[in-house]
Amino acid sequence: MKFFGLLSVIIVGFLLLSATKDFPNWGDEDSPANSGPVSSFYIEKTEEKTKVPNMVTAVLADYRGYDTMFETVVIFIAGIGIIAVLRTYGSNESIPKNQVGDEGAGLLARMTCSLILPFIQLFALYVVAHGHHSPGGGFQGGVMLGASYILLALAYGLARAKSCFSEKRTLVFAALGIFIYVGWGVLCLVMGSEFLNYSALDSILPGGVEMARSHSMLAVEIGVALTVTAIMFSMFSNLSTKGRLDKGL
């Protein structure tokens, strides 16, 4: 059985590698991605029009806002799906009473986690907020923030993490993230422009049209980060306890 697994991996890998020959060359001027007017527009005009040095963030959160919005919705649906499949309510008799309650991973792991957890959370917020200037953004920062709660659950036990980030709060945060994103788009609609056209918001945000777009990207990234954080922690707690949410790993 292992041999067939190896064989299939080798065959699929060979097919994938042989398909890379059909890619355009690195930096080829005539390739479809480079010859069209879209890429050059992004490269030349992004910093001028949105005051965001990191082009990727501008494309992700502004020019392709619909795409990112529904990516966030996909993550939300994945989390909801995991809860719907795994979560079981009511008492489960198969666990003995003395095994309910999770004491964590020992003193040394707890001390280390209490030392590094604040810095991981601070770094996650930095990644969310600094996505305009360096690699980062809502998804990455959300994953780091969710990982910090997972670390708390691993070191101190799931009950401790649930006292910070209970199941109800998880779902509220997950929905709140999408609400912020969609609400920001509807706000643009109310201000008399298209859905997710941030330049309409310059009358209520300081700093002119360009800075309005920049600030709107930050707001949208915060929404994404909330959803990703909540769904990460929800997935971990459901998968590690088989949906009972009583005892961690």
Binding site: A105, G106, L108, A109, T112, L115, I116, F119
Partner: peptide, 17 residues
């Protein structure tokens, strides 16, 4: 240097665990 401190804290802990 913060990465160095982070690894100095975490690597012995994970080895111990």
């Amino acid at each position: 240097l913060a990465i160095a401190v982070l690894i100095m804290l975490t690597s012995p802990t994970s080895t111990h665990l």
